[in-house]
């Protein structure tokens, strides 16, 4: 095994940088989680274990309302972008025309546009159309932004789905719509669930778009957190932040694991490298 031997000469620098990187990545997060259980207000001296900040959170009606708002936004956006993104994936994959390619390029534009631009533009179009800013405007903006994720993931799966299987369904008595419903969509279920979870997680803690498109009451959770941390830090925010990180992390882990559960060949990496957001 000459090959393994040579590569065994580990590049010390790379390993050291990697270890430091993981420390840099996780220390702040663990610090937040740790001090969310501190019984005093201090963020530097851990004086004792307590769940008081979590209890506070679950008694804070304003924060709870924000949490509900964020969950609602994430849920509706996930469903909405799933429907639109899947339609788009099918259209782009099956209509091989110039028009199709133009539409495809347009959908991907939000991915390469700085989010502040998308946010500002959404704010202008909503106020221009006379819409009252609120949860619905946040949802509209988030769906617009999330369609691309669904499209990229679903289209990837669709491209590897043999057309012959759809023909087999039609051969066995399915109309085109039935073959779509009974054969093609079931094959896409892992990709659909994965992209739904991913969009839910991204929208749930998205700040920039929500910041520009939300109304006053109720504000999505990240917007409320932002306004309170601009001027300082507090253990209460640590508690909320820990919860948010935990929820998102679980959803994303689930989305990454999903293709494997369904014995799909596509790796979890394909899921992410397809798009980018923060």
């Amino acid at each position: 095994m000459a090959r393994a031997k040579k590569l065994e000469r580990k590049p010390l620098v790379a390993v050291v940088v990697t270890v430091l990187f993981f420390a840099w990545l996780y220390v702040p997060i663990f610090a937040v989680a740790l001090f969310s259980f501190n019984d005093k207000k201090s963020l530097s001296a851990f004086s004792g274990f307590s769940t008081r900040w979590y209890v506070d959170f679950f008694h804070n009606e304003a924060l709870l309302e924000s949490l509900r708002a964020s969950l609602l936004i994430a849920l509706v956006s996930a469903v909405g972008s799933l429907v639109l993104g899947t339609m788009l994936a099918f259209g782009l994959e099956r209509v091989r025309s110039r028009r199709g390619r133009v539409v495809g390029a347009i959908t991907l534009l939000p991915l390469v546009t700085p989010e502040i631009v998308t946010g500002v533009a959404a704010l202008l179009v909503f106020t221009g159309a006379g819409l009252k800013l609120g949860l619905d405007t946040v949802i509209l903006a988030e769906i617009t932004f999330s369609i691309a994720y669904v499209t990229v993931i679903v289209r990837g799966r669709l491209a590897s789905f043999p057309l012959e299987v759809e023909e087999a369904a039609r051969d066995l008595g399915c109309t085109p719509w039935q073959s779509l419903r009974l054969v093609t969509l079931p094959a896409l279920v892992p990709a659909l669930i994965a992209s739904g979870l991913l969009v839910f997680a991204l929208v749930f803690d998205d700040f920039v778009l929500a910041f520009f498109t939300t109304g006053v009451d109720p504000q999505p959770l990240p917007v409320r957190i932002y306004s309170s941390i601009r001027f300082g830090v507090s253990p209460a925010i640590n508690a909320v932040g820990t919860l948010m990180l935990l929820v998102s992390a679980l959803l994303i882990v689930a989305a990454l694991m999903l293709p494997r559960l369904f014995k799909s060949r596509s790796s979890s990496l394909d899921l992410i490298t397809g798009g980018e957001r923060r």
Partner: peptide
Amino acid sequence: TPPHRRDVNTVFQSYALFEH
């Protein structure tokens, strides 16, 4: 006549089974 109304069935080269 569309395929689903033809009294004809096909065995495909790739078999095209419904994996789900």
